[in-house]
């Protein structure tokens, strides 16, 4: 296994970097979209319920299936992966964002409204700061989920650590299998732990 590392280091760090890049890109897009959706949902309760149900249905579609369904439309490769991953993340992010913001003590938000803050000011100056831990937890869940599902994206040519796994599977190469598993598991565990620690400090 170490031999594999020394002989073909690029076969390890390139998938790793691809994976991190994929996760990063997906997260930025996901959070941006989720933020907009959250704002809309906060204003409109019935839309919020409907949207969350829809996203819940999407979330329960297995990732391989969703990729497969999207490919005829968006082709193989990273784009499809990002679209599917973003869709999954919306369920997690929207749920955590709306719950987190709603669980801010109503007494505090009422007080803010009462002294004359606009809805947007209440949101930015009161709700978001008070809910920051819950919001961050939502992001953390999305990151970990993306790392996990991202491994599967390798099967549709999106790159990432999954390539090590699938290639290793194809050629029955233990070294690749081990590296793929350890790196993807390690990345997930490490990221979760780091984000957890950051969350505690918030």
């Amino acid at each position: 296994m170490i031999r594999f590392l020394t002989r073909h280091p690029e076969k390890i760090y390139i998938p790793l970097l691809e994976h991190i890049e994929l996760v990063f890109l997906t997260l930025i897009i996901s959070v941006a979209i989720a933020a907009v959706l959250t704002l809309i949902c906060l204003r409109n309760e019935s839309l919020s319920l409907w949207l969350q149900q829809l996203l819940g249905v999407v979330y329960s579609i297995p990732s391989l299936a969703l990729f497969a369904i999207l490919i005829p439309v968006t082709g193989l490769g990273r784009t499809t992966a990002v679209i599917a991953l973003t869709a999954y993340n919306q369920y997690l992010l929207l749920r955590n964002f709306t719950t987190g913001l709603k669980e801010v003590d109503p007494a505090v938000t009422d007080a803010a409204k009462g002294i004359g803050m606009t809805w947007l000011q209440v949101l930015t100056k009161v709700q978001i700061p008070l809910a920051r831990r819950a919001l961050f937890a939502g992001i953390r869940l999305a990151v970990v989920s993306t790392i996990g599902i991202g491994t599967i994206a390798a099967s549709i040519n999106a790159g990432g650590l999954g390539t090590l796994l699938f290639d290793g599977l194809r050629t029955m190469n233990i070294a690749r299998i081990l590296w793929g598993s350890i790196l993807s598991a390690g990345l997930a565990i490490l990221t979760n732990a780091l984000l957890r620690a950051a969350e505690e400090r918030l």
């Binding site: 790392i147 996990g148 491994t151 796994l165 599977l169 598993s181 997930a188 565990i189």
Partner: peptide, 12 residues
């Protein structure tokens, strides 16, 4: 937290 694919393949 570990990706499901990793566990599936690791067991082989």
């Amino acid at each position: 937290v570990i990706p499901s694919l990793a566990i599936l393949v690791l067991l082989i």
